[in-house]
């Protein structure tokens, strides 16, 4: 297992380097320029100077090499400096956002907590909703419950979050003035009431995303359960005189979880990716909102770095999913 992991990680390095180049070129070739953000009242000479100050006038490969150096050397060095008080960076420039002129990693660091709490909670809530629905739908296939579950899952799949989000706002913030529509990032949870406040402001974005997540996961759960439900070993368990609970929750569920767990693991990078639309709608300053803001402002260093981090996460979580599969299913062994 260890050699398998190491081999996969080593293989990932050239892949990721290649991906980084592709992302860089794609981001760079995409139409638009940071110029378009500068108002027309700024004269062309000044615009030109501003672009030069950003380094955006350099040829693409020069910027790519610089970015590589910043990403793989300056940023880690900066991190080490921060931990041990060393001075490895020695005044070299970190990756700076063109839009805010602050280091991209500082921005990411500021945003990860919100994304993890909101999107992460939504993912967990989604899983928590999806599991029982998936299990019960499969257990009572074609029952009324299953039909309703199917319908809800279909709605969850097909209704875009900007629609469900706006609907939630109108119902829970405008008609029933219960929940805030704008996420307050400065809220520090120190006591019971601020904790409640945090729950209230998380409620809507979490529910919107949880619904979407639950739809997908409950379907996976259901089909995986159904597949196992008809297996002989389930009949064996019944023949042993095990209670239905044990049969379903121990025998069927545990085997059905194997593919579902991997699907869930593969979905984790998307938590880090944040939810572009939902975050934006509810003012959650997560990674998704950062990405869309950066795209709008043609903030290339930000877009590039975020896109690359997602690529790394996807590669890593693919590996984790594979390893999990091996751990969960005794039939699979990696050498």
């Amino acid at each position: 297992m260890l050699t398998f992991t190491l081999r996969r990680l080593l293989l990932a390095i050239p892949t990721l380097l290649f991906i980084s180049l592709i992302i860089f070129l794609l981001v760079d070739l995409a139409p638009g320029s940071p110029m378009s953000e500068i108002p027309l009242t700024v004269p062309p000479e000044v615009r030109k100077k501003m672009i030069e100050a950003l380094g955006a006038d350099q040829p693409v490969f020069v910027r790519y090499i610089l970015w590589l150096r910043q990403f793989f050397w300056v940023e880690p060095a900066n991190l080490i400096d921060g931990w041990f008080g060393t001075n490895l960076v020695g005044g070299e420039q970190r990756i700076l956002s063109w839009q805010s002129r602050s280091p991209v990693f500082t921005v990411i660091g500021q945003r990860i907590p919100q994304t993890l709490t909101v999107i992460g909670t939504a993912y967990l809530v989604g899983i928590a909703i999806a599991m029982p629905i998936g299990i019960y739908s499969a257990y009572r296939q074609y029952s009324v419950f299953d039909q309703i579950g199917t319908l809800i899952a279909m709605i969850g799949f097909s209704v875009p979050t900007f629609f469900s989000g706006t609907l939630f706002i109108i119902v829970f913030a405008v008609w029933l003035p219960w929940l805030p529509t704008k996420y307050d990032t400065t809220l520090a949870v120190t006591d019971w009431s601020s904790f409640l406040q945090q729950l209230r402001q998380m409620a809507m974005p979490v529910m919107v995303l949880a619904l979407a997540n639950a739809a997908a996961i409950s379907r996976y759960m259901r089909s995986s359960m159904l597949e196992n439900m008809g297996q002989d070993y389930v009949r064996t368990a019944r023949a042993k005189g095990m209670t239905e609970r044990v049969v379903v929750l121990k025998h069927v569920l545990r085997n059905s979880l194997i593919p579902v767990v991997t699907v869930i693991a593969l979905g984790i990078p998307s938590i880090f990716g944040g939810a572009i639309i939902t975050e934006n709608l509810f003012g959650v300053n997560g990674i998704g909102a950062a990405l869309i803001g950066a795209i709008h402002a043609n903030d290339l260093p930000m877009v590039q770095t975020l896109a690359f981090i997602f690529a790394v996460l996807i590669v890593v979580f693919n590996l984790i999913a594979d390893i999990l599969y091996g751990l969960l299913d005794p039939r699979i062994r990696y050498e």
Binding site: D232, Y233, R235, M242, N255
Partner: peptide, 28 residues
């Protein structure tokens, strides 16, 4: 009791031999 036609499929792949045999003992 029943001995099943397909010995592979009728055993839970995630349970060890002793838990397969032992499970009904726990229950009954």
């Amino acid at each position: 009791q029943m001995v099943f036609q397909d010995p592979q499929a009728s055993l839970n792949p995630r349970m060890s031999l002793s838990s397969i045999i032992g499970e009904p003992l726990v229950e009954h």
